[in-house]
Write a protein that binds this DNA or RNA. Structure first.
Length: 423
RNA sequence: GGAGAGAUGGGUGAGAGGCUGAAACCACCGGUUUGCUAAACCGACGUAGGUAGUAAUAUCUACCGCGGGUUCGAAUCCCGCUCUCUCCGCCA
């Protein structure tokens, strides 16, 4: 959620930048500002009224104590009208606040000035590419065929137990999952992240804190009996650790890493290109999260990018980094880099990480602040990135590393797997 | 699941309709003292929002788990909810 202060003080800049995401937002900004003004006026009236009532109540108290009952009764009569007015002022103010809030939550984060102009994925800018794309030849199999051939994952079995998109990993398929999780966690810990293992279900407050609610409710599994949501990413519980927290400046940056399964309904997203591991309802991901000083957040974003690059290079996978254009960015993000690996048998780039700076957009909802040098509470910046999401890494790894003898495991993973080939 | 107790500022903890935005103690911060450290003493010390001012600041409003209610006036009384603790039951 954008801060009112920013919209008031930099309304033109906000409008210009929001137009990169969608030109319609400029109108919303104007509407927000006009309601804000109205709301402040209403609050002023309400507070003056309340101030008068408080004063009278005090006087009545004094009269009662000195035994002047009739004087007290006279003043009491005067409070009736104030009370009546107070009610209507309060109602009006509440209504305006609600309107303001309802509009404010529809505004996405303001894109960073470097964000490319564009509406679709085609307009993202390829800022980096590394690794060699293997020549697989005629008989190369897509990962869903390889999975069958080597009996690594059973999609039908998962469909029987739960439904489509809930795979059952078996044998070396299960072991390589566990290996990747441990590898990714160890790499993050070595880079200075503290591991956390958060709950997999969250309440509505947490969903709001990171921006899943109220808008993207349909993307999460919802247990209505207890009003809890299955997490779509570890970002939600981990970032919400810092909800309603005032940190010390010297505690920043906070770096957390966590492995969790992620649950996504992916409503409406099913269609072409979702075979095999390309899109699942449940998948595993290691997520890195940072709570940062605003002055440092972009330097830390670069650091996160370097971390993710390191992982992909250790896995020996060809990848590229996209600087997302305004129209392709998520609601909460100010700047996002997507990492894609090239899955050679499918001949496609697959998104395996999304690494973003949210600036104070999430922090404003979370009320996560730090006490700055002037002793004032200031919103932190939040960042997060996948490091990494497993299924498409596995898909790429299987496809790119297939040989007549079997699937070669990259050296970095061998100690974690306990085997160096799947055959 | 049943019974009981509780939730107050960074922490401990008083307050039981008006003198309480909240005692006291501890921590933190600033200062005095000091060879250094410590101690002692003095002072400041919650959050959010509005208004005035370039600003330091002043002033108003709200907040004692959350949401309602009673009252001229609520941390304090009443109702609902959430959470914590203790005992019993069940249980990986």
């Amino acid at each position: 959620m954008l801060t009112l202060q920013y919209l008031r003080e930099q309304s033109q800049e906000a409008k210009d930048r929001l137009s990169k995401k969608n030109p319609k937002h400029a109108e919303t900004v104007d509407a927000v500002l006009s309601i804000d003004e109205e709301s402040r006026k209403a609050k002023g009236e309400m507070e003056r009224n309340q101030s008068e009532a408080n004063l009278l109540a005090k006087k009545i108290g004094e009269l009662m104590k000195s035994g002047d009952k009739t004087g007290a009764e006279e003043l009491k009569a005067q409070t009736a009208i104030l009370k009546e007015n107070g009610k209507s002022f309060e109602e009006k103010s509440k209504q305006l606040d609600q309107e303001l809030f309802d509009l404010l939550v529809t505004l996405p984060n303001v894109p960073h000035e470097s964000v490319p102009v564009g509406q679709t994925a085609e307009e993202n800018i390829n800022v980096y590419q590394n690794g060699t794309i293997p020549e697989l030849g005629e008989n190369a199999l897509p990962h869903w065929e390889l999975i069958k051939k080597y009996d690594l994952i059973d999609f039908e079995l998962g469909a029987k137990i739960t439904g489509a998109g809930f795979p059952v990993y078996k044998g070396k398929g299960a072991r390589i999952q566990r290996a990747m999780i441990n590898f990714f966690l160890d790499q993050a810990i070595a880079a200075g992240y503290q591991e956390v293992m958060p709950p997999l279900l969250v309440n509505a407050d947490s969903g709001f804190g990171t921006g899943q609610l109220p808008d993207k409710e349909g993307q999460m599994y919802h247990s209505t009996v207890d009003d809890l949501y299955l997490i779509p990413t570890a970002e939600v519980p981990i970032t919400n650790i810092y909800r309603d927290v005032i940190l010390k400046e010297e505690e920043l940056p906070i770096k957390n890493v966590g492995y969790t399964p992620c649950f996504r309904r992916e409503a409406g997203a099913w269609g072409a290109h979702v075979r095999g591991l390309n899109r699942l309802h449940q998948f595993d991901k290691v997520e890195i999260v940072q709570i940062a000083h605003p002055d440092q957040s972009y330097a830390l974003l670069d650091e996160m990018v370097i971390h993710v690059k390191g992982l992909l290079e250790k896995l020996e996978l060809p990848y590229r980094i996209l600087h997302l254009c305004g129209g392709d960015m998520s609601f909460s993000s100010a700047l996002t880099y997507d990492f894609e690996t090239y899955s050679a048998a499918q001949g496609r780039w697959l998104e395996v990480s999304s690494t973003s700076n949210f600036e104070n957009f999430q922090a404003n909802r979370l009320k996560c602040r730090f006490k700055n040098k002037e002793g004032k509470n200031q919103l932190v910046h939040t960042l997060n990135g996948s490091a990494l999401a497993l299924p498409r890494i596995l898909a790429t790894l299987l496809e790119n590393n297939q040989t007549p003898e079997g699937i070669r495991i990259p050296a970095a993973l061998v100690p974690y797997c306990g085997f160096d080939i799947i055959n």
